[in-house]
């Protein structure tokens, strides 16, 4: 008899049992000490749960952000729409998101990063890596006086030329000051072969003028 009505105790305490069951339970509470003890224990634990539940519910409600339920259906719709998109539509949706006010900063960041990468790539492509040991040796052969430690000025000039040779032409020109440029050009002029030497021809002023714009 007790076992039959024990599972109904929680519902009885909450007032959720039919009247016929409530009558039987009340009889047992009045007549059966064991059942009465079960009832008291159950009522006590349910009171504690009830009190704690109020605090728990209030804490959980505080954790719900403002307007959460007002925006919930929109969030669900967005997720459903995202799942139904074709790959092409996803790309366009991504681009559209970038053009929205919130995404503009991301777009600016992506553009800036792409520009930096392009500039770096361009710079790497235009770097002159032809600084072979043979070039340096050839220069030393061209200026044997440069080995003479007693002539430091000339050694410095040759070192400048060697240094400049490591850069692409436009950089090397800009890396020399006026005085060094004149000195290097004069030296080169002295050392350059002339028309009398055979294979090389010195360009006339008119030739230089016509070629320079093209170069």
């Amino acid at each position: 008899m007790i076992e039959k009505y024990l599972p109904d105790l929680p519902d009885y305490i909450k007032g959720n049992v039919p009247k016929s069951v409530a009558v039987e339970i009340e009889k047992l509470i009045a007549t059966n000490a064991k059942f009465r003890a079960e009832y008291d224990a159950m009522r006590s634990v349910m009171q504690r749960i009830e009190m704690a539940s109020e605090v728990m519910q209030s804490e959980m409600e505080q954790g719900v952000p403002p307007f959460y339920f007002a925006n919930f259906a929109d969030k669900v719709e967005q997720r459903i729409a995202a799942a139904q998109r074709t790959p092409m539509e996803r790309v366009f949706a991504g681009l559209r998101r970038l053009l929205e006010p919130k995404g503009r900063f991301q777009l600016a960041g992506i553009c800036a990063a792409a520009l930096i990468v392009a500039m770096l790539f361009n710079g790497v492509l235009r770097l002159d890596f032809h600084i072979a040991s043979g070039d340096i040796a050839a220069l030393k052969r061209a200026y044997p006086e440069a080995q003479d430690e007693k002539n430091p000025t000339l050694a410095t000039r040759v070192a400048t030329v060697q240094f400049a040779a490591g850069f692409m032409p436009e950089v090397s020109l800009s890396s020399l000051n006026d005085e060094e440029e004149i000195a290097v050009l004069n030296k080169l002029k002295e050392e350059l072969p002339t028309a009398d030497d055979g294979d090389f021809n010195i360009l006339s002023d008119d030739d230089v003028k016509s070629l320079l714009p093209t170069l």
Binding site: P7, P10, M42, S44, M46
Partner: peptide
């Protein structure tokens, strides 16, 4: 289910 519900309270107790 009734048994489960009752035993849940007993376990909490």
């Amino acid at each position: 289910l009734k048994a489960n519900y009752f035993h849940a309270f007993k376990k909490i107790e």
